[in-house]
Amino acid sequence: MTDESLMLCVKKNDLDKAAILYERYKKKLYQFFMYKNYNDQEKSEDCVQQVFYRVIKYRQSYTEGNNFRIWVYSIAKNIQYQDFKEQVKMDAAHASYQTDEAYTLVNDEHQAMLQALKLLPEQYREVLVMSRFLGMKYDEIAEINNCSVGVIKTRAFRAINSLREAYFKIA
């Protein structure tokens, strides 16, 4: 069964089908939130739970014919955005004793790549996570973000290029 037909079953209160959708998307969403939350496992799992909670709670708002993947990532993006706003407030509250996070060169390739990802602007990082880690096409990302495919491609290029510069500086 396709994701869309499963979601239609869920919409008709066949909630067992939600478990299938969960199995299909939990890993990708988890990765999405892991990169968004800088490898914070607990926070990412909590965000995945919130996504599926909203999928089930607002199942009646799903429109037949819509791409389920786009719909579910839109929910994920909203959750991440709300979480980001709360994070900004907390950061502002702790600004007085927070140390500046400076980009430091480390020899470990993976750690360097994570640091580079962390320092990317949010728009670039999001496109990179969606396209690379979640396997989404640029046009799908554009649809989720309500912008043109050209803008997404430009963001993707700049995100990868930034990482390249960071990585090859180390090298």
């Binding site: 939990k26 892991m34 799992e45 599926f52 089930i56 990179l128």
Partner: peptide, 23 residues
Amino acid sequence: MIGNEAESKPMSDTMDTQFFAML
């Protein structure tokens, strides 16, 4: 390279438990 990074941390079992309880 960043593709390989995705497999770095696996999910915990508690996420599944919480989901099915919620369901």
